[in-house]
């Protein structure tokens, strides 16, 4: 991360990379239950990263940063899910869960990182914008207005898409994948 800091700040690609590295360094705690007393949650993590990175990078604006961070967060999620899947195949399947606080805060009881990552991937295939909205609203804790500005759509569209995506994910996570 230290090396990356010097790389052309302000450029989108390296923004993402830097944010990602920062998040990954922080994210370990989220996915390990032994750190359950750290009540870190994805959103807090993103904001923590923002505070750390904000004065080192010239982000276009806060929304831009948050949307980027949300993408990075999602990547962290996917990586952990994949790692867990490998584990599972090896027969030593430890369920990877979000920390207790993050989990209940998100209403994700019973679902784990794999389920969430899979569901998000499926949503992305079906409707990419809705998956972006979930990233912004859920993973980055952005308001409807902030999300609308970051994705350049109307607030009403964000609001309705968010409601639908949320309902779809809930249905899918609670009933399990249908295949």
């Amino acid at each position: 991360m230290n090396e990356r800091r010097s790389e052309s700040p302000g450029e989108s690609h390296s923004d993402t990379a830097a944010v990602y590295e920062e998040l990954r360094a922080l994210a370990g705690a989220i996915f390990q239950n032994q750190h359950a007393n750290h009540t870190l949650q994805p959103t807090a993590l993103v904001h923590e990263a923002y505070l750390k990175l904000a004065n080192k990078h010239d982000f276009v604006d806060r929304e831009h940063f948050l949307a980027t961070a949300a993408r990075a967060m999602r990547q962290v999620l996917i990586n952990h899910a994949n790692a867990a899947r490998t584990h599972k195949r090896g027969g030593d399947y430890a369920r990877v869960t979000l920390t207790g606080a993050a989990q209940s805060a998100a209403g994700l009881d019973g679902a784990d990182a794999i389920d969430l990552a899979d569901a998000l991937a499926e949503l992305e295939r079906l409707n990419e914008r809705q998956s972006r909205i979930v990233e912004c609203r859920f993973l980055a804790g952005m308001t409807v207005e902030e999300t609308a500005r970051a994705l350049d759509v109307s607030a009403r569209t964000v609001q309705l898409d968010w409601r639908m995506a949320r309902a779809w994910l809930k249905q899918r996570l609670h009933t399990g994948a249908n295949e």
Binding site: T43, G107, F138, A140, R166, A167, L169, K170
Partner: peptide, 16 residues
């Protein structure tokens, strides 16, 4: 599902 979530927010609610 949407209706239920509106009644009782929590699912995917960002507490931040």
């Amino acid at each position: 599902e949407d209706f239920e979530t509106l009644q009782t927010p929590g699912f995917l609610q960002s507490t931040f």
